[in-house]
């Protein structure tokens, strides 16, 4: 009876997970085995691995995702560390980090178009400094910058949480035992914040593999990722099978990343 009661209480959650997690993933999986005419086929997968376009695209996406994740990490770690040092105002500072997440990504991206364009803020500044106008929009660097900007909070927050959880007596003990600052950092602090780094990497790497809107608005479709291909297959070519196949491959990549960054016990 008690078990039944438990089930009743949990039912909405089961329903939620079933409808919005398991069912969609199942549908993607099923679609990925169908061709344009709705017949069963393995060709989508064969196509992905035989066609140099898709492999190159996967490689490109991987490179961009690694670069974006790495830059986010180097930028986010000091920020998280510095914020944690402000005993009194750190909640407020974290709020400042979170605040941009409340603004729609599309709006933020359009703001960057205004900053990067030929008559935009950045070029006006450079021109006033006598450095001339340059092409920023539609370059790889602009794309990476906007992607990092967008993802940064997802890296700062978990690292910050693990930084404030560090027991300071461990750091003091390290100094007392004669460790230098660098040694303390690499041997004590980094291992203690590793869980934060791992969840930050997980939260950024996978979305970066499938970024699509920024590739078009900031990258001008000169940067093509797997996300762009999925968008195109679903919206313009109507080849849902191939789109789903790329989706399944991304899900598998995600599982691999999860396994690689899993807590070792």
């Amino acid at each position: 009876m008690a078990k039944f009661k438990h089930f009743l209480v949990a039912a909405p959650y089961y329903l939620w997970i079933g409808l919005f997690v398991i069912l969609p993933i199942g549908l993607i999986f099923i679609y990925s085995f169908h061709d344009l005419n709705g017949h069963f086929t393995l060709n989508n997968y064969l196509n992905f691995f035989k066609n140099s376009t898709y492999l190159l695209m996967a490689f490109n996406s991987l490179c961009f995702a690694i670069i974006i994740t790495f830059i986010s990490l180097i930028v986010a770690y000091p920020i998280a560390w510095i914020i944690s040092k402000f005993q009194n105002s750190r909640d407020f500072l974290i709020l400042l980090v979170i605040m941009p997440m409340w603004i729609n990504l599309l709006l933020k991206t359009y703001a960057f178009i205004g900053i990067f364009s030929r008559n935009g803020t950045l070029n006006n500044l450079l021109a006033n400094l006598g450095l001339g106008r340059h092409q920023f929009l539609f370059t790889d660097i602009a794309f990476i910058l906007v992607a990092v900007y967008d993802q940064l909070p997802f890296m700062i927050l978990p690292i910050y949480n693990s930084v404030i959880a560090i027991n300071h007596s461990l750091i003091n003990a390290s100094y007392d035992l004669g460790a230098s600052k660098t040694q303390t950092f690499w041997r004590i602090i980094v291992p203690l914040t590793l869980p934060g780094i791992k969840s930050g990497v997980q939260a950024i790497f996978i979305p970066s593999l499938s970024l699509f809107m920024i590739t078009r608005l900031i990258g001008g479709n000169r940067v093509i990722t797997l996300g762009t291909a999925i968008e195109e297959h679903f919206l313009s070519t109507m080849n849902w099978g191939m789109g789903s196949t790329i989706g399944v491959i991304l899900i598998i990549a995600m599982i691999l990343i999860m396994l690689l960054t899993k807590e070792s016990k």
């Binding site: 376009t53 190159l56 695209m57 093509i224 291909a229 313009s236 080849n239």
Partner: peptide
């Protein structure tokens, strides 16, 4: 027809990938 359209689309993606 679907087959040729798919060919157009694949080639288009290939073209977009070219740097």
């Amino acid at each position: 027809g679907a087959k040729i359209v798919e060919e157009y689309n694949d080639l288009y993606l290939e073209f977009k990938m070219a740097r």
